[in-house]
Simulated scan of single mutants.
Amino acid sequence: MTSRTWLITGANSGFGRHLSEQLLSRGDRVVGTFRAIGSVDDLSRRWPDDFRAAHLDVTDPAEITAVVDEAWAALGRIDVVVSNAGYGLMGAAEELTDDQVVHQIATNLTGSIRLIRAALPHLRRQGGGRILQLSSVGGQAAWPGGSLYHATKWGVEGFADALAGEVAPFGIGVTIVEPGGARTNFRYGGSVLADRIEAYDVTPAAAIRRVLTERTTEGIGDPALMATAMIASVDHDPAPRRLVLGSDAHQAIENALNARLSDVRTQRDSAKATDSPLEGVITSGPADLNAE
């Protein structure tokens, strides 16, 4: 088994914690980032030679650059970058404040993009590596009450999907990880619930509010097994573009994709009807290159 060096954001809890513990236990090195002071002290004590803790607020561009550059300077090489830090902002779109919207995007979407962009020059110079971008079943399927969370996950999937083609020539693989419900602290500790607008109590958006306030449900996914699957994916070459984790995620994503494909197929003729009738129109290249 090849020993690797990993950079993992949000290493103090959830998937980041499970990944860190499993990797350190098998002899890999980990740079683990955290926001809450003291939240990774136990990892530092247990693996003083192999775990490097770094404070990181992924909404701070300067701190992202500093942490990434310092990690490479200290360790020489990082094989895998795991963009994991994030949280869920739940509530109907109208219930959200502007500040909540900005912070959700800055954390889940812009923060992930900035982290990866900061790592790319190092990965290129060392001749390759792997990027794991944590998304969610919510990056392919969407439910009322999670509009902003879905916006960030759909956005980061589009970014990572295009990125994979850009960096493949440099030996850099990109995998989008799409877990379903897992028994981590995400649901009842890592999610923020918007203030209630009474009019939405009788709409589908109220379902997520009931889940988060009643605390009567648990995800079916085992986070330790999911972390093991993420680690194993790094041994695959080429990198799997997507890694679906959990039977609930698989079913929801399959249903969502089938529904979208069905909608698209019914519009074949109407889509063609908008083509230019002029001869000599250039049609090669990305279909949406000139999209408005």
Results as ranks from 00 to 15, higher is better:
residue 262 S to P: 01
residue 223 P to A: 03
residue 119 A to E: 05
residue 149 Y to Q: 08
residue 115 L to W: 08
residue 268 R to E: 14
residue 160 A to E: 02
residue 54 A to F: 07
residue 269 D to I: 10
residue 268 R to N: 06
residue 193 L to S: 14
residue 39 S to Q: 12
residue 219 G to Q: 03
residue 246 G to T: 00
residue 150 H to C: 06
residue 90 M to H: 12
residue 172 I to K: 10
residue 106 A to W: 06
residue 239 A to K: 03
residue 98 D to R: 09
residue 228 T to L: 01
residue 121 P to F: 07
residue 125 R to F: 00
residue 220 I to D: 15
residue 13 S to M: 08
residue 236 H to P: 00
residue 209 R to P: 10
residue 22 Q to Y: 14
residue 67 V to A: 14
residue 157 E to D: 14
residue 132 L to N: 06
residue 16 G to C: 09
residue 76 G to K: 10
residue 104 Q to S: 11
residue 103 H to N: 09
residue 139 G to C: 03
residue 48 P to Y: 13
residue 105 I to W: 09
residue 7 L to K: 10
residue 7 L to V: 10
residue 173 G to T: 08
residue 227 A to Q: 02
residue 281 V to N: 04
residue 180 G to N: 08
residue 45 R to V: 04
residue 230 M to G: 00
residue 85 A to K: 02
residue 37 I to Y: 04
residue 268 R to Y: 08
residue 60 D to I: 03
residue 148 L to P: 01
residue 221 G to F: 01
residue 239 A to N: 03
residue 252 A to I: 01
residue 265 R to E: 15
residue 21 E to G: 03
residue 132 L to H: 08
residue 91 G to D: 10
residue 202 V to M: 09
residue 235 D to Y: 00
residue 71 A to C: 08
residue 14 G to N: 11
residue 226 M to F: 03
residue 114 R to K: 07
